[in-house]
């Protein structure tokens, strides 16, 4: 086709098809150009993306592979490919589920994560609304103070918090965690929601005020429905952090059956210096599933609500 030779209509159609579907055919200018831009896309988009994905997903792959490996393959990399499983087994999962309190840990972790997320969102909504919309005297400083609280690292805060937990008789109960996680969840969620509330036109609330709504009615019927994407991102954030939290869970819980998953698999599946890698990884894998599901379900909702109704 390099020579200028008349093209039949059918051929022309084919060429159009090929171009539309991004197909690469050798030859003249336009195709060269599309080949060029395709090459550029591969270098600038796909290769970095693939590298990024490999780096990001490798730990999960390792976790999954380890979970299903029998012990002899796991400990002998000379005779077995470390990246692959020759004879997969469910032994590790069986051990995790039937020889430990794993089910119990999962339930506790879920309870703690949901409880602290709920509490934090409730407190953050009220705080963020008051700071952003009621603009009471000194509201700016209150906002800053909440943010400053966020900057205190948990590794320092857990010492005074331990005192509080002890004196309230909450030590070794899930409530020790449910009530302490908000110390780092509330500041972040509040700031996130302040930003979100700011994006909702104030006129809507003024209009509702004239329509006869009270402040709480406005919050419930106007502001919150419009802030759903913000609430969801705050919720995802709070849930994930509580699910994975380690320091407080390690410090405030002592009995085996009250532990959360991250602490339990490290303290219960490592006996002395023996690491039960298979069961440990099985625990980590199962433990990350709820978060993954949670993300998958809400991220879609999150995106669709972001592109949906909020503006106008």
């Amino acid at each position: 086709m390099t020579d200028a030779k008349p093209i039949s209509p059918a051929e022309a159609d084919q060429r159009v098809d090929a171009e539309v579907s991004g197909g690469v055919t050798e030859g003249e200018g336009p195709q060269l150009l599309s080949w060029d831009s395709r090459a550029r896309r591969i270098v600038t988009v796909y290769i970095p993306l693939v590298i990024f994905l490999i780096v990001l997903l490798f730990p999960f792959y390792w976790m999954a592979v380890t979970t299903f490996k029998p012990d002899n393959e796991l400990l002998d990399y000379k005779n077995h490919n470390p990246f692959w499983i020759s004879s997969p087994t469910l032994d590790n999962i069986k051990k995790l589920l039937f020889d430990t309190d794993y089910g119990h840990w999962l339930v506790t972790t879920m309870f703690v994560a949901i409880g602290s997320t709920f509490l934090s969102i409730l407190a953050s909504v009220l705080a963020a609304y008051a700071i952003q919309r009621l603009r009471f005297r000194g509201s700016d400083y209150v906002g800053l103070a909440i943010y400053a609280a966020y900057l205190v690292p948990p590794s320092i805060l857990f010492i005074p918090l331990a005192q509080v937990v002890f004196q309230m008789g909450l030590f070794d109960t899930p409530f020790a965690l449910i009530l302490t996680y908000p110390t780092f969840l509330v500041p972040f969620c509040t700031w996130l929601l302040i930003g979100y509330f700011k994006s909702i036109p104030y006129e809507l609330e003024e209009c509702a005020l004239i329509d006869g709504a009270s402040r709480l009615q406005i919050l419930r019927r106007i502001t919150l429905p419009l802030a759903v994407p913000g609430l969801i991102s705050a919720g995802i954030f709070a849930f994930t952090l509580s699910w994975n939290e380690f320091i407080y869970a390690l410090a405030f819980i002592s009995s085996t059956e009250n532990k959360t998953v991250p602490v339990a698999i490290l303290t219960e599946l490592v006996s002395g210096d023996v690491y039960h890698w298979g069961a440990l990884m099985a625990g980590a894998l199962l433990g990350s599933l709820p978060v993954a599901v949670f993300y998958m379900f809400f991220v879609e909702y999150y995106v669709s609500s972001l592109t949906g109704a909020v503006k106008e």
């Binding site: 036109p201 809507l204 003024e206 005020l209 006869g212």
Partner: peptide, 20 residues
């Protein structure tokens, strides 16, 4: 007197319709 007790109705420049 609070706005809701004044028995008025207001139409805003960009309508302020509740989007949801």
């Amino acid at each position: 007197v609070a706005p809701k007790e004044r028995d008025i109705a207001m139409v805003f420049q960009n309508y302020a319709l509740y989007p949801h």
